[in-house]
Amino acid sequence: MRTQLICFFILLLGLPLFLTNWLPSADHDDTYIIVLGTKLNKDGTPSTMLKNRLDAALSYKGRDIKYIVSGAGEAEAMGNYLIQHGINENNILVEKQARNTYENILNSIKLIPKSITSFTIISSDFHIYRAQAMASSLGYDVNTIGVKTPLIDRGYWQFREVMAIGKYWIIGN
């Protein structure tokens, strides 16, 4: 029984990374990028995980891109980080009402012109499957960039995401 339980938890923790391997990765052709927020440091600056997401967004620097930074509490800090790293503030749209992944995507999509049917979502590797599934369920062609999660944080976030994926499969958001 103990061996079966251990195998179950190994499978459970590996699920988000396994599912991520089947997602389309970004080709840098999209004109809109949604960067999903996550926690800030106590001093209000982006955490390592959030900086990694923002740094991935910076790989689009120099192109005619609109960056949507999303998340209640962290969106302004995200926008400031991009500005500090050379992104024109006119190319940054701030969505600061979202309290969860579904709201991040739903509220961010409202900032994208109706004529745009494809965009890129940037989040952490463990999180990108659910974010992509949610956006696709709303009728969009979604590209993704899954940023590597720091090893020290991986177990906690993957376990949390497995629970969130289960909730998404059952409830839908």
Results as ranks from 00 to 15, higher is better:
171 I>K: 10
15 L>N: 08
135 A>M: 01
51 K>A: 11
43 D>Q: 04
107 N>D: 06
146 G>Y: 03
117 T>R: 07
2 R>Y: 09
88 N>Y: 00
1 M>P: 02
77 A>I: 02
144 T>N: 09
110 K>N: 13
22 W>R: 15
127 H>F: 00
70 S>G: 00
120 T>W: 00
65 I>G: 01
116 I>R: 00
43 D>W: 00
29 D>V: 06
159 F>V: 09
150 P>D: 12
60 Y>C: 09
101 T>I: 05
139 G>V: 00
16 P>F: 01
158 Q>K: 02
16 P>G: 12
162 V>M: 05
85 H>W: 05
152 I>E: 14
113 P>D: 07
56 A>N: 07
142 V>S: 06
78 M>H: 03
161 E>H: 03
166 G>F: 09
90 N>M: 07
15 L>G: 09
160 R>F: 05
57 A>R: 00
170 I>W: 09
161 E>I: 04
5 L>N: 15
90 N>V: 06
41 N>L: 08
134 M>D: 13
83 I>E: 14
125 D>A: 04
132 Q>I: 07
132 Q>C: 12
149 T>E: 14
125 D>M: 00
95 E>H: 03
145 I>M: 04
60 Y>P: 03
81 Y>G: 01
96 K>H: 11
62 G>A: 11
9 F>P: 04
27 D>P: 02
59 S>H: 08
158 Q>P: 04
112 I>W: 02
100 N>H: 07
108 S>H: 01
62 G>M: 11
15 L>V: 06
143 N>F: 11
169 W>K: 12
156 Y>C: 12
74 E>R: 01
146 G>S: 04
59 S>C: 10
105 I>K: 04
106 L>G: 07
76 E>W: 02
116 I>V: 10
122 I>N: 09
25 S>M: 11
44 G>I: 03
111 L>E: 15
29 D>R: 03
151 L>I: 05
47 S>E: 13
150 P>S: 12
160 R>D: 13
107 N>Y: 07
42 K>S: 07
70 S>E: 03
22 W>P: 06
104 N>R: 06
28 H>S: 15
133 A>V: 07
117 T>C: 07
5 L>A: 10
105 I>P: 09
16 P>Q: 08
22 W>Y: 15
101 T>S: 10
5 L>S: 14
110 K>S: 09
60 Y>L: 07
52 N>V: 05
93 L>W: 12
10 I>F: 09
126 F>Y: 01
37 G>K: 00
128 I>G: 05
41 N>I: 02
50 L>M: 06
137 S>T: 01
161 E>A: 11
86 G>N: 05
115 S>V: 05
35 V>G: 08
53 R>S: 08
65 I>H: 02
38 T>E: 13
125 D>V: 00
60 Y>V: 06
22 W>T: 14
67 Y>R: 00
7 C>A: 15
58 L>G: 05
142 V>Y: 02
142 V>D: 15
48 T>V: 09
29 D>M: 10
63 R>L: 15
150 P>V: 04
32 Y>T: 04
113 P>N: 05
1 M>W: 03
